[in-house]
Amino acid sequence: MDQQPGNRDDIRHFLASRRARLSPVQVGLPMGPRRRVAGLRREEVAVLAGASLG
């Protein structure tokens, strides 16, 4: 797959900004005991999407 050099960073920033807008409680997941940042973790997004992080 041929990608432009900045494309991966653009996608990474886009997805991170969207994850930061939601809390686990908003999407029906339990709030964990300790969170370093607000928003959903990658693992939580994968669970919601039915995908693996693989």
Rank of each mutant, 00 (worst) to 15 (best):
V45S: 02
S17V: 02
L22K: 14
S52W: 05
A51L: 14
R19T: 01
A46R: 02
R19P: 01
G6I: 09
P30Y: 04
D10W: 06
G6V: 03
R19L: 10
L29E: 08
G28D: 06
E43L: 12
R34Y: 04
D9Y: 00
A51S: 05
R36H: 13
A16M: 09
M1P: 03
R36N: 11
P33Q: 12
P24I: 14
A16G: 03
M31L: 11
V37A: 15
Q26A: 15
F14Y: 15
R34T: 04
G32L: 05
I11C: 01
P24L: 12
M31A: 12
E43W: 11
L53G: 00
R42Q: 10
A38T: 04
V47E: 05
A46C: 09
R12C: 05
D2C: 11
H13W: 09
R41I: 01
G28S: 06
S23K: 15
D2L: 15
G54L: 10
V37P: 00
G32C: 01
E43D: 09
D10E: 13
D2E: 01
P24M: 13
S52L: 10
V45E: 08
P30H: 04
A16T: 12
R18M: 13
P24Q: 12
A49F: 06
M1T: 08
G39Q: 06
Q3T: 13
R35V: 02
R19Y: 03
R12H: 10
Q3E: 10
L22C: 12
M1S: 12
D2K: 15
A46S: 04
G6E: 13
A51M: 09
S23C: 07
S23F: 09
R21V: 14
S17E: 14
L40D: 01
S52T: 13
V45I: 12
A46V: 00
V47R: 11
G54V: 10
G54P: 04
S23H: 12
R35T: 03
L40P: 01
S52F: 09
G32Y: 00
L40A: 06
R34N: 07
G32F: 00
A20Y: 07
A38N: 08
P33K: 13
V45G: 03
L48C: 06
M1D: 04
Q3D: 04
R35E: 01
Q4T: 02
A16R: 14
R34Q: 05
P30L: 05
V25K: 15
P30T: 06
D9K: 00
G50I: 04
Q4M: 10
R36M: 05
G39R: 08
G6F: 09
N7I: 02
F14L: 13
V37Y: 10
V25Y: 08
P33G: 14
E44C: 04
L29M: 06
L15C: 11
S52Q: 11
G28T: 08
G39S: 05
R8Q: 15
L40V: 03
P5M: 07
G54H: 07
